[in-house]
């Protein structure tokens, strides 16, 4: 009986020590010297970079996607080379080339340059998604539009694209999620995003566990919020489906 009691008290003590350790670490990592502000600012930066990169990515992706679909050999070639080069090189390398080489003498804010770099990267993947989406629409739809006298551009804009968007929406969401996580490399050009903030706290406190856990949880929550809200959008897009 005494043995169990000793063991139990010992366990309670261990848990208490462990817990007070966590509390101390928590204080050290997030409260002391207002370090939580680093993380909060980091969230803002991650969101800012991702959002702009997505917009740029869709724009570039649409143009390059149309190039790849074009019958014009030159445009087709441009589309092919673009996707080949971007998909064939690591995004860290692209980010660093764009920041340290292409924009070396341009003094814009770092996060804008990072957005451009990620937008250019994402554009290659989005272009393939858009190409697939447009090809997924039956040729009869284009023929019906053209037979009514609508021009090629009008047919594309009012008939093919709205249907294609619905088909490619899940794939686009996937690309956005990948992109958000990809921005965790902006630390390479000295931008303080979520990951860099966690890394900074880790170095300052020699405590790796809590900052990195916090980083993981924040990314997870951001992406969960995005997934849920995009789910609503998709439902709205599907209102013409009767299934």
């Amino acid at each position: 009986m005494d043995a169990i009691k000793t063991w139990w008290l010992g366990l309670c003590n261990d848990v208490a020590v462990w817990w007070s350790g966590i509390c101390d670490d928590f204080y050290l990592c997030f409260v002391k010297e207002d370090r939580y502000k680093l993380i909060l600012d980091g969230i803002g930066v991650t969101i800012k970079v991702s959002l702009f990169a997505i917009l740029i990515g869709i724009f570039i992706g649409f143009l390059i996607g149309l190039c790849s679909l074009s019958k014009n050999k030159f445009l087709n070639f441009i589309g092919k080379v673009y996707t080949d080069v971007i998909r064939g090189t690591p995004s860290v390398t692209q980010l660093m080339i764009i920041y340290f080489v292409v924009f070396a003498n341009v003094h814009w804010e770092k996060w804008i340059i990072a957005s451009i770099a990620f937008g250019i990267n994402s554009g290659a993947y989005v272009s393939e998604i858009i190409r697939a989406g447009i090809l997924s629409i039956d040729k009869g739809q284009t023929e019906a539009g053209r037979s009514l006298g609508l021009g090629a551009v009008q047919t594309m804009l009012h008939i093919v694209v709205p249907q294609a968007v619905k088909n490619i929406f899940p794939a686009l969401c996937n690309e956005f999620i990948v992109l958000i996580k990809e921005t965790a490399i902006v630390g390479y050009i000295g931008i303080m995003d979520i990951q860099k903030a966690a890394d900074f706290i880790k170095s300052a406190t020699f405590e790796p566990f809590l900052p990195l856990l916090a980083s993981a949880i924040i990314y997870f929550v951001l992406i969960k919020i995005l997934t849920v809200s995009l789910g609503f959008v998709e439902k709205a897009l599907r209102k013409s489906d009767v299934r």
């Binding site: 039956d138 009869g140 739809q141 023929e143 019906a144 539009g145 037979s147 009514l148 249907q163 489906d241």
Partner: peptide
Amino acid sequence: RQKMGMVFQQFNLFPHLT
């Protein structure tokens, strides 16, 4: 083409529109 209407075997209605 505006002078000529065409009806297709597969209807080709635009499914995303009423």
